[in-house]
């Protein structure tokens, strides 16, 4: 990518915003694994690894898996946020590889929130 002009920046913003919020593109679901130091030390890498492997095995092409930093509630890591297109994001806590697979199966594929490890739905209050 060459140096950006101010116009380029605006273009990137619009395009990325659409993908980030699942407004356009192929994806109908996004799974964000929270990978701050706290999450990683609690086992987020294993959770991520299991998730990626399963998605490859199932050949899912419409699910985005991405990472982000600490979600704030370090005592409940590893955490992940699952967002289906048009629905409020759901935060999962105390995850393990087998638990994220259940989330993938039941929530992402079947549309049922896995109440056992779901903390809450919705977004945080930003000022």
């Amino acid at each position: 990518m060459p140096r950006l002009s101010i116009e380029d920046l605006k273009k990137i913003r619009e395009e990325s915003k659409a993908t980030l919020t699942l407004r356009s593109g192929q994806a109908r679901a996004k799974i964000t694994v929270h990978m701050g130091t706290c999450g990683i030390s609690a086992g987020a890498r294993d959770v991520m690894g299991a998730l990626l492997k399963e998605i490859e095995k199932l050949g899912l092409t419409d699910v985005i898996v991405t990472t982000s930093g600490c979600a704030g509630l370090c005592s409940r890591e590893p955490m992940a946020t699952v967002e289906l297109r048009g629905e409020a994001p759901v935060k999962y806590v105390d995850l393990k590889p087998e638990r994220i697979l259940r989330v993938l199966r039941e929530h992402v594929l079947e549309g049922k929130v896995v109440v056992d490890f779901a903390l809450a739905s919705g977004c945080e209050t930003t000022a």
């Binding site: 929270h34 990472t67 946020t81 903390l119 809450a120 919705g122 945080e124 209050t125």
Partner: peptide
Amino acid sequence: IPALKDIPFFAKQRLVVLRNRGAID
């Protein structure tokens, strides 16, 4: 499951510096 804004841990916070936490890569 409850809404995030109904959980005191999240409800009383106001994110400025951490506005993008957990939301962007």
